[in-house]
Simulated assay, not measured.
Amino acid sequence: MLPSNTLPNPAILARPRRRRSPMTLGAAFGLVLALVGGGAWLATRTPIVNLGNEQQLSDSGLLQAWKDGAVIVMIRHAERCDAAPGPCLAEPDGITVAGSQAAQRVGQGLHELGLNGADLLSSPKLRTRQTAHFILGQALASADWLGTCDPQFPAEAMAHKRPGHNLVLVTHNGCIDHFARQQHVPGGERASGYASALFVSLDGSGKARILGRLNEPDWQRVLASSGR
């Protein structure tokens, strides 16, 4: 027989097992649902690829899609005169001198891609018309929907895309945001820098796919490295 001081305490043996609180189980179940739901939400998000990265440019399929005339490119106007300290090109609601130079560099990049057969349109606002002039060396036809930037912008852009012809749109951050929003791009990735370009391809059924964004400083470098 064991000494009495080694016997288990009857009070401990009699202690009932602790039951999990229904509130605790409910909270855990809710956490699981939240995690699953969060994963599904993330799966629907469309990140914008940085085409300034040579590998991502190659993987995006942009160069082939451009050859096929299957691309819409939305270019934000260059640096605004009324929002920058540099000298203005002309009127305060236009672009800066530095902005005009940036637009010329974008234009050189677009010409490297090739503009034969491309359709070219600009917002009627002065800053976009000036940007378009320095990008393309000519005045462009303008369209009000490129300056209104309402939720109908994505439908308008796709309606103006002709099969086999790339479409170049010089527009505003708000318009580009509407297109990116429709494609489920997260809010933190939708903002476009001055003179940056968002490239979108359309397949044979008219379904849009964002290929990526090319910022103004990267045009010449990446196109040169890709053999353009």
Score class of each variant (00 low, 15 high):
Q101G: 05
D144N: 12
G109F: 04
P3Q: 15
A102K: 13
A103P: 00
S225F: 10
L202R: 11
Y194T: 14
H165M: 07
S60F: 08
L63Q: 12
L126P: 00
Q182A: 13
R221G: 15
A102F: 05
P47G: 10
W219R: 08
S122L: 03
A132R: 00
G38H: 01
A70F: 07
K125M: 09
L121A: 10
M23E: 14
V200F: 04
L169W: 03
P163A: 15
M23W: 08
G206N: 04
L62I: 07
A132G: 06
K207Y: 12
A141E: 15
Q138M: 08
I176C: 00
S4L: 07
G206D: 06
R17G: 07
V49Q: 12
D119S: 14
A90W: 01
L7M: 04
L126T: 05
A78K: 03
A118T: 15
R190S: 07
L42C: 10
P217S: 06
C88M: 12
Q108N: 05
M1P: 14
A40S: 11
S4Y: 08
L62F: 03
Q220K: 11
F199G: 01
A78E: 00
T148S: 09
W66P: 02
V106L: 04
R162C: 04
L35I: 15
Y194A: 12
C175H: 01
R80H: 13
I95V: 05
A83R: 13
D177M: 14
A84M: 02
G137Q: 05
L211G: 09
L120Q: 12
E216G: 07
I135H: 06
S100R: 07
N50T: 03
G26T: 01
E189I: 06
A103L: 03
S142N: 11
E216R: 13
A141C: 04
R45C: 08
T96V: 12
G212N: 09
T128W: 01
L169I: 15
A14N: 08
R213G: 12
P8R: 02
R190Q: 09
P124L: 10
A197M: 04
P87M: 02
L121S: 13
K125S: 15
S196D: 14
S201T: 15
L35Q: 10
A132C: 00
G94P: 01
P151D: 07
L89G: 14
N53A: 11
G187V: 13
L62W: 00
H77I: 13
G86H: 15
G174V: 14
R162T: 11
I72K: 09
S58D: 13
P186S: 03
H133A: 15
G193A: 11
L115N: 01
K67M: 06
G30M: 02
V71N: 08
L121F: 07
S100P: 03
A143R: 13
A34I: 13
I95C: 02
I95H: 00
H172L: 00
G52N: 02
